[in-house]
Amino acid sequence: MTEADLSEPGFEGTPLLNFMKDVLEQEPKLRKDSVKKVKARVVLTLRNKENQKKSWFFDFKENGTVEKIEGDSLPKNDVAITMKDTDFLKLVDYKVQAQKLYLNGRLKVKGNLMKAISIETILKAADPRPKL
């Protein structure tokens, strides 16, 4: 596994991406389950308050890893998700549902929508907060 930091200045959601990367690296069962359940390569592109874009690559097809994408060229993927950084924070913090963001046009999905939905199970499994 790489020790690369996923943080990006100006993007408030990047600590959550680093946390997810760390959990996947430290929990082989979760990593294996993420590949088994999602079976997709996902690109997440966030847009910050200054309208800058940055993307991260989730390989849930082969090895259950998360990497920051350098440059504008996106790797081959099954699903591409685009949203505001602030909406990503709300989504991960359970303040808004992905379906609501999608229906309101605030979360855009290109590719296999069902695979995009399956990512939510991985986010919940990596969440350290007690389940209600």
Rank of each mutant, 00 (worst) to 15 (best):
L30W: 04
K76D: 13
R47E: 08
S118E: 12
N63W: 04
D93R: 15
Q52H: 07
D59G: 02
K32H: 10
K90R: 15
K100C: 13
L113V: 15
G111P: 02
A126C: 08
A126T: 05
D72V: 12
G71C: 09
E67K: 03
L30S: 04
K37N: 06
K110C: 12
W56Y: 05
T86C: 15
F88A: 13
P128A: 07
F57M: 12
V38F: 03
L89R: 13
K21Y: 01
L30A: 09
S7R: 10
W56F: 05
A126R: 03
K95N: 14
F57N: 05
L89N: 13
E8L: 08
P9M: 13
S55W: 02
D22P: 03
F88L: 15
K36W: 08
D72Q: 15
P28Y: 05
E12I: 10
Q26E: 09
Q99Y: 15
E3P: 03
K95H: 15
K90C: 13
N104Q: 15
K76P: 04
A125S: 10
L6G: 01
L91R: 10
A80S: 14
F57K: 04
L103V: 12
L46T: 03
G71W: 07
N112H: 11
K49F: 04
K84W: 14
L107Y: 06
K29V: 11
L46K: 00
T14K: 02
L24V: 03
M83V: 14
K95M: 14
S34Q: 06
P130A: 11
T45C: 02
I117W: 06
V92D: 09
G111V: 08
D59N: 09
E8N: 08
T121W: 11
D5S: 08
L101P: 10
V109A: 13
L89K: 15
E67S: 06
R31Q: 07
M83N: 04
F58Y: 02
I69H: 01
F19S: 03
V42S: 00
K76Y: 09
F57E: 04
L103M: 15
D72E: 14
R129F: 07
L16K: 08
P130E: 08
S118R: 09
A116C: 14
K76T: 14
G71H: 07
Y102W: 15
V43R: 00
D59R: 00
T82Q: 14
A125Q: 07
V109K: 11
A125E: 07
Q97N: 15
K110F: 13
E3K: 08
K53N: 05
F19H: 10
A40K: 01
F11K: 02
T86K: 14
M20G: 00
I117D: 06
T45P: 00
K110L: 14
G64I: 00
L107H: 06
T2M: 04
S7T: 11
M1W: 01
K21M: 01
F88H: 11
V42A: 00
D72I: 10
K84E: 14
D5I: 08
G13D: 02
T2N: 05
E27A: 07
D22R: 08
E62R: 04
E27S: 06
L74F: 13
K108V: 14
K54T: 02
K37T: 05
G105I: 11
F58I: 02
K100M: 13
L16Y: 09
M20L: 09
W56Q: 02
K21W: 01
F57G: 02
E27N: 11
L6K: 01
T65F: 00
E25Q: 12
D22S: 12
